[in-house]
């Protein structure tokens, strides 16, 4: 993150953001991956992931954030997230029913357990994370043509 004093907020905000933005992203990923064990899940985690990018945009201006995740990438990832979720649901047909949990369930309260639920959470996390970021981006980038 190059420090361009022309855009964004003051040095104090930028320094703190630089320190915390990675932690926020990590926390979002933690919430997504532990969705089947603890409160949270794909939606809540996805929102936190999106917030880390929004945070970046607020502190450093829109160019930095767009250089990380562009508008096209966001829109493609959103479709991919939705299709991932749908294909996980369709995989259930292998076992005979739509949305059937066909993977081994494992022992409860282990990270690798609950069959397809963590995979669903990841797909939802991708979809919600980039979707929310894309909405914020649209509000910032798209201006009314004069």
């Amino acid at each position: 993150m190059r420090n361009n004093p022309e855009t964004g907020m003051t040095l104090i905000v930028k320094t703190i953001t630089r320190l915390t933005v990675g932690l926020i992203l990590l926390f979002g990923i933690y919430i997504i991956l532990h969705g089947h064990l603890s409160p949270g899940g794909g939606f809540a985690g996805g929102v936190i992931v999106a917030l880390s990018f929004v945070h970046l945009m607020l502190a450093f201006g829109k160019d930095i954030a767009v250089s990380r995740v562009s508008k096209n990438l966001a829109s493609n990832l959103e479709s991919i997230g939705a299709l991932m979720f749908l294909s996980i649901a369709l995989l259930g047909f292998l076992g005979g029913s739509f949305f059937l949990n066909i993977l081994p369930k494992g022992t409860p309260f282990n990270l690798f357990s609950a069959g397809i639920i963590p995979l669903c959470n990841i797909a939802i996390g991708i979809k919600v994370g980039v979707g929310l970021f894309a909405i914020f981006l649209a509000l910032v980038v798209l201006e009314r043509s004069k």
């Binding site: 829109s75 493609n76 959103e78 479709s79 991919i80 939705a82 299709l83 749908l86 649901a89 369709l90 739509f98």
Partner: peptide
């Protein structure tokens, strides 16, 4: 369930 699956898949395939 195909009545939900087909349009949903079509929607996101088109956007992709």
């Amino acid at each position: 369930p195909l009545f939900v699956i087909i349009p949903l898949a079509a929607a996101f395939l088109i956007s992709l």
